[in-house]
Computed example of a mutant assay.
Amino acid sequence: MADVRDAGTPDDEVELAIEGALRPTSLAEFVGQQKVRGQLQLLLDAARIQQRSPDHILLSGPPGLGKTTLAMIVAHESGRPLRLSSGPAIQHAGDLAALLSSLTPGEVLFIDEIHRMARSAEEMLYLAMEDFRIDIMVGKGAGATSIPLDLAPFTLVGATTRAGLLPNPLRDRFGFTAHLEYYEPEELERVVSRSASMLDVGLPGTARSEIARRSRGTPRIANRLLRRVRDYLVVNGPSTGTDEGHADVRTVGAALDLYDVDAIGLDRLDRAVLDALVRRFRGGPVGLSTLAVAVGEEPETIESVVEPYLVRIGFMGRTPRGRVATPEAYDHLGAPHPDGMLRFSRGS
């Protein structure tokens, strides 16, 4: 669902500016995650009163819930510069050493997908977080020596979708850890309302509810769907009987149906997985690798992208023998329940 215009045009620059503008810049503007917002506000207020850098922060949770945005807010509300990096980009201890040694005093360092850092870099980070110092090895073999290098005080904000993969010594060095939860539909409506006003898209309450309902509890998806509705309006607005820049619930439904997003947020791949599980494997149980081959995707994609949402809404279950479909999945596909279906029901 990416834009198809040539990169580098002025319109592309406008789109990038709009994407950045949709991110809230303060905790007061941030929608949802009320408990985490309150905890972060206390952390930042205490640091400001004591005139020190905030403690290191670990944010965990599914993609698209606002971890990067919260890191930007931490830097903005602290009045500190922000440095962005990611775990996959730090594959050697030297990569991390170069990054840490270039930080200015008080700078906020954000590392996305921190669980994917190289193990050697993780071990270097222990000392850097605790004592603001790293040890640089010079030479090789018996003649190698360790030279300590002092670092400017900094605040590390780590983000991860797989908190269980972080080693305990690293997790314990964060002064504050928070887990972000999926959003309720009412919260997503507020996200859509705010973004729609910034994109100059008129949406009545029913249209906002329709987008929120198809957004899988995720603000990033809500904003993406809103932009696709805006694109649909630009091309087809007059023919739908609505004013340009204004969408009713039928227009929203038509736009999202065009992009294969159904009434509860399932996309083409979600439905392909459900269809294979229900019709080809008779509701399971079936192994992840077999299911992935049946839909032509990698097992990692099924496990990390498709499965979490299907399990959360009660359409799929995970058992020791493999994945199984629930009665709700059969109902959604309009397929008849097989004998013995109740044993796969949610909560059984």
Rank of each mutant, 00 (worst) to 15 (best):
E122K: 12
D172P: 02
P308A: 00
P63F: 00
A212N: 08
D135W: 03
V14P: 01
S101P: 03
R213P: 06
D262S: 01
L100T: 10
N223I: 01
R173A: 08
G8W: 08
S304C: 07
Y232P: 05
N223A: 05
G296M: 07
V192W: 02
R116E: 09
F132S: 15
L203K: 01
E186Q: 09
A163W: 00
A222P: 07
L151A: 01
A207F: 08
S53T: 04
R343N: 08
S86T: 10
G296R: 14
L151W: 02
K140F: 12
A292Y: 11
L342I: 08
Y183I: 13
S239D: 08
L125D: 01
G106Q: 04
T319A: 09
E13C: 03
V157E: 01
L59E: 05
S78A: 06
G202T: 12
A21G: 12
S289P: 00
V295G: 10
S60G: 14
I114G: 07
R346P: 03
A142H: 01
S215V: 13
A128C: 05
H179I: 03
L342P: 05
E244W: 10
D243A: 15
L42W: 06
S86G: 07
L333P: 03
H56V: 08
G296A: 00
E244P: 11
I147R: 15
D150C: 02
